[in-house]
Amino acid sequence: MSDLLAHVPHTRLVPEGSYGPEGKAGVRARQVLGLAVATLTARKGKAADLARRLCAAGLPLVDAPKAVSTMAFTTIGTGPGRWLILAEGMTGTALLAHLGSLAGADATLTDQSDANLIVEVTGPDARATLAKGVAVDLHPSAFGAGDAATTVVSHVGVTFWQSDAAPAYRFMVARSFAPAFLRWLTASAAEFGIALSGTGRG
């Protein structure tokens, strides 16, 4: 058994730092902080109306596994008529109020700002690392910037999306599963070297 993570309690986030061969960082991962998150679900039969109305208000909703970003918001399709809405520099309460004013009676909103951790994974070996747990074809011909998927990685449910062509991927992981997710990510990226940040000093 590798002692790579032997010193890290299974209940804590893998602490920030470098893991793997000295001086190599084929993968960079960081916790993205400061995002408010809400689920937005269309009321029965209102998905199309809702998407139209919010698009007109500058909040693009695509009823598909896509991530669309504007200056302030990112919307991610997680199921028919269901989206995650992410907003920077805003509290969950404020995000709900804003979305509520746009959606009116066409949607149901739930604050999820405390429910998840968001981890960004990037670097030249990001794809090779993610292939060790993500059962989605991440080849550029199959999955590009703006594509999203809700799936399971290493027994942990995630929603993830490619945020740019670099490539950079963002994974949203339920808070109590985040230690397990980071253990898998760190172990999988170790052969390439991984620089992990934003997860505290352990």
Partner: peptide, 21 residues
């Protein structure tokens, strides 16, 4: 694969885990 010993399955800490420790 990765899932052996305590990594056999995820370990979920409660929000007050560190406090309880």
């Amino acid at each position: 694969g990765h899932h052996r010993e305590k990594d056999f399955r995820p370990t979920r800490p409660t929000p007050t885990h560190a406090w309880a420790e």
